[in-house]
Design a protein around this nucleic acid. Structure first.
Length: 400
DNA sequence: CCTCCACAGGAACTGATGGCGT
DNA sequence: ACGCCATCAGTTCCTGTGGAGG
């Protein structure tokens, strides 16, 4: 009987992989041909067509639920256009940002500026007034005589940030051309929220919403086709069983038609199958993958919480299904036992709703007549999971 | 039918941090 | 050296509310 470790290592060394090309199984990979999005691709191209005629196109707004390939299509169309106009005297500069990756308005503007080759000196990553940053970006465009296209992903998120600070950067962005002498600026906004437009300032709508493209959700059939395409490219032939493929499509398509999820799922299933040295990806691998993805999400978000949030989660765990008041007093006693100052109840309710947003707990508003109004919170994940993840935390060890 | 509970959740503010321009 | 600006975590103060119990 050989050592199990050796056996595994041997297998890994000699065994052949059923995945040919891992990169294709990441949703950021842009296939040569994007199927099933023909009308949308056409529409996007149409509205950006003026660039070929060397004039500035209208601003564009792209809608669609997550995982519908919006970003992929926009990126593909733009890079093709960029390729074509490269040699003309109207070269375009493509700039992409995702609002979710930047927590602040300032950060977003800086990331735009960085791509315009403004370095640390010209555009410090903190310390300036927002209007100053904006001015410098525009100056750079003018100075280099650029025709910039700003692609702003998850622009609804940006709109939220903006509304909080009271600055209307979106408005300024859409009207930036009036301030530019030689360069030009086009805005392509990508939004998940179809109602997002209604929340905007009407002046922004009129210029940003000049053109609109809506991406519809994928149905299960379409997801299946997308998966098939990627599988033939990424996997060794015949290594994914049909039922497994169907389940993948059904799991991802069932809710929102999220192709991204489907691709994640098949990738993880493939990895699991490989680790088990199976020659085929079966339906069980997909199930396992689905569970694993869920657990990973839970674990990483649990780990990333600051101390007080962790304490609150523990308090909820110890008194499952209790009201805010009960949670708060339990939290206070937990604070005492780890020797930290407790925060106010107001702050705790805020944290609770933040945690609820991440899906780890779920709350229900309850009116108890004379006994007032409360929100009752329940864990949506297992207590074992929490215990397991918080065991490593030194300050929490003894109270888990 | 009114009252009044036990909070929800909005708004405005504070103080610390960090880095700018002048 | 100084004032200014943005941001973050947290606080203070506040108004709002569905319905059990009187």
């Amino acid at each position: 009987m050989s050592d199990p470790i050796d056996r595994l290592l041997d297998a890994a060394e000699t065994g052949k992989s059923i995945i040919k090309n891992r990169d294709i199984l990441h949703f950021t990979y842009i296939p040569n041909t994007i199927q099933h999005r023909n009308t949308e691709q056409e529409q996007v191209t149409q509205s950006l067509l003026p660039i070929l005629k060397q004039s500035r196109p209208s601003n564009l707004l792209v809608y669609g639920k997550p995982g519908t390939g919006k970003t992929l299509v926009v990126k593909k169309v733009l890079s093709k256009i960029q390729e074509r106009v490269k040699k003309s005297n109207f070269p375009i500069k493509l700039i992409y940002t995702n609002s979710k990756e930047e927590t602040t308005l300032y950060g977003l503007l800086v990331s735009l500026g960085r791509q315009l080759e403004l370095d640390e000196k010209e555009l410090p990553s903190t310390g300036l007034a927002i209007s100053e940053v904006f001015k410098r970006i525009l100056n750079k465009i003018d100075e280099k005589n650029l025709n910039a296209i700003f692609v702003i992903d998850e622009i609804d998120y940006l709109a939220q940030l903006v509304s909080k600070t009271g600055k209307d950067i979106l408005y300024q962005l859409t009207r930036a051309n009036e301030r530019l002498k030689t360069g030009s600026l086009t805005l392509v906004g990508i939004s998940n929220d179809l109602t997002f437009k209604e929340k905007l300032d009407p002046r922004v709508i009129s210029s940003l919403g000049e053109e609109e493209v809506v991406f519809t959700n994928y149905n299960v059939e379409q997801i299946k086709k997308i998966l098939e395409e990627r599988i033939t490219e990424a996997f060794v032939e015949d290594s994914v069983e049909d039922p497994a493929l169907n389940l993948c499509a059904a799991l991802a398509g069932g809710e929102h038609g999220d192709a991204r999820r489907a691709i994640d799922l098949i990738r993880v299933a493939g990895e699991i199958a490989e680790r088990q040295q199976s020659e085929k990806v079966t339906i069980d691998h997909v199930r396992e993958a689905s569970l694993k993805i869920e657990e990973n999400k839970e674990e990483t978000s649990l780990k990333s919480y600051p101390l007080h949030e962790k304490l609150i989660i523990l308090a909820i765990m110890k008194a499952n299904g209790s009201s805010t008041g009960e949670i708060y007093s339990l939290y206070k006693s937990l604070c005492k036992s780890v020797g930290r100052d407790e925060l106010t109840q107001r702050r705790i309710t805020q944290m609770l709703s933040e945690i609820e947003l991440s899906g780890i707990i779920s709350g229900r508003l309850i009116h108890q007549g004379i006994h007032g109004r409360t929100k009752k919170y329940k864990l949506t994940i297992s207590t074992e999971m929490i215990k397991k993840t918080f065991k490593d935390d030194l300050t929490l060890q003894d109270i888990v």
